[in-house]
Write a protein that binds this DNA or RNA. Sequence first.
DNA 1: AGTCTGTTCTGCATTACATCA
DNA 2: TATGATGTAATGCAGAACAGA
Length: 303
Amino acid sequence: MMAQKQDLGLSLSLNFPATAETNPSSIQLNLMPAMVSSSSPPFNLLHRTPIWPDSCPSSSDRNHNADAFRVETRSFLKGIDVNRIPATAAEAEEEAGVSSPNSTVSSISGKRSERDLPANENDGGERSSSRGISDDEDGDNSRKKLRLSKDQSAVLEESFKEHNTLNPKQKVALAKKLGLRPRQVEVWFQNRRARTKLKQTEVDCEFLKRCCENLTEENRRLQKELQELRALKLSPQFYMQMAPPTTLTMCPSCERVAVPSPEKAMDRPRVNQNHHRALPFHPWSTPANQVVQRQMSALHPRS
DNA sequence: AGTCTGTTCTGCATTACATCA
DNA sequence: TATGATGTAATGCAGAACAGA
């Protein structure tokens, strides 16, 4: 089953690019193309916008995309386990009920009530013929599941990688190529989007869990440090060696916390003169966090 | 211009079936 | 062979978007 998931392109990885080590706010989930849009931000849980090359093309523009895809996938389709190929494109469109206001296809036949009818009611028993079910079985309303063939799934996956939604013409074309009903293609894409989202949620959940662990560890460390400082404060020697109250600063080059110079103990902490401007110390960039981030990178190596 | 109605599409939750250990 | 777990195709519903009256 794991191999099957990989085939579906669902493998995910959590990566922490070099920049993320010094700027945790830039941490991104490095996902496969099918999972997210090209500009996917972190925690892109709701990826509801159809990913077309342009922002909102007309259906005719989209159809160019479909044509390009047709050429790409043509070679896949030899020897596919065909359940049933609609006799004509018009028939396929009828089955799809394609009459979107955005579509260039006729809207005469596209009533939802028809579209949602069970296959054996609106397609003349197509499903039964596709699965070799007898006429008797076709008569009842029992729901039979079609298992898509490996090739069919592969083609659908390829298509999904191109774009995770289909316009009506693409849907019909794909269905025709695969020998499926357009509704089946539509359903497959719906379920595929759902799986993608679920996987994304799992990744995000894991990420947040790690963040929580990091913060807990950091909190523990700071509490310990605070205790030590309080203990030190109570000792008589403390006042002899006391450094001035200070804000921790970090050198952006070597990522070390600046140490106040002894001769200027009452002055602000000093960073090595060779280094650049000191930056405020950020808890995300602590070595402890970097260790955890490296661990996560090891867990989810970049492909 | 604003409103209503009808249609389609999509996301989501859920169900039902197929497969496997 | 029976059974529970798992994966996934299919269903139903709600809401958004849009066109036309």
